[in-house]
Simulated scan of single mutants.
Amino acid sequence: MLILLVFTVLATCTTSFINLCAYRLGQGQSPHSPARSYCEHCHRALSWWQLIPICGYLLQAGRCRFCRQPINPYWPLSEASCGLLMFCCGGADVFHNVLVLIFLMALLFITTTDLLYQVLYPLSLIGLITLAGLLPDWHWSSPSSLLIGGGFLVFIGLLTLPRHGMGSGDLMYLTVVFIFFGWYKGVILLLVACLLALPCFAFSRATVRLPFLPALCLATVLVLIFCP
């Protein structure tokens, strides 16, 4: 239990760092420069207690201490969500917990960059290789499964890319997912992602392009948990 609690706290703290990396990368900055984290509104350096995951947000009542501008609730919500998922999916095995942590941080980075900048960095997909260890019965998909899955992705691409319904980053992510989950679970994952994204698409303006990778990442976690 102690190991699980340690990894839960570690996941929450690592989430804060991954979010910082994703945010700064889109701003053309590096994770270590500027040296101090800052408010995205007034750009004043934050105190140590403001950087405590979840607690810093609550202590400031959701507003920057300096400029009183609202803090993006995505930051504490993602910290709490990753900590909760780590607690639910982890265990007493340290190696398994490390795989879960890497997997969650990869999904978080993909989600954050797509939400903020609608971009997928292909290198972030490397973190999904941990699925090979998280899926107990995983093996390389058979040629027939790869052929069916590849044909399905080509069909989806031809159907959606010309109409800008799905981006190339979405298809790259789905390609990796189909390799690990197979075509059957891959299709289920895509359907779950569409259902998760449906309310956002229903109430959004037609001219606004909505990010789809967050729904795909959440669907990946759900399929991993409920369809082992």
Rank of each mutant, 00 (worst) to 15 (best):
P211N: 07
P122K: 01
G150H: 02
Q118K: 12
R205Y: 09
A92Y: 07
A219C: 09
L108M: 08
F66T: 13
A11Y: 08
I71M: 11
W183T: 07
V177Q: 12
L195Q: 08
A80Y: 04
R24A: 07
L2P: 00
F203E: 01
R36Q: 15
A22T: 02
H32R: 04
P34F: 10
F7Y: 15
F178V: 02
Y173H: 02
R24P: 05
R44N: 11
Y23W: 14
T111S: 14
G150F: 02
L108W: 06
V221Q: 05
T8I: 05
P31L: 11
C64A: 12
P228T: 03
Q27S: 07
W140H: 06
F155V: 11
S30V: 02
A11L: 08
I3W: 10
I148L: 15
S124V: 14
T220H: 00
S37K: 06
C39R: 07
A197Y: 06
R209C: 06
R209L: 11
R44T: 13
L59G: 03
D170W: 11
L59Q: 09
R36G: 00
D93A: 10
F95N: 02
Q50G: 07
G90P: 02
N72A: 13
H32F: 15
G91Q: 04
T111L: 13
N97R: 10
I225Q: 14
G157K: 07
L213S: 10
P53W: 08
G62A: 03
L59A: 12
F226I: 05
P214F: 11
S47I: 01
Y57D: 03
C200V: 12
L58C: 11
T8V: 08
L5V: 15
C82G: 00
F87W: 15
F109Q: 12
L159H: 05
S204N: 09
W140S: 12
R24K: 06
L158Y: 13
C194G: 09
V94S: 02
C217I: 00
L120K: 04
W49P: 00
N19D: 06
F152I: 11
C200S: 13
P199G: 05
P34I: 03
C227T: 10
C64I: 06
Q69F: 10
G169N: 04
F201C: 04
A35L: 13
C200M: 13
Q50N: 14
W49M: 05
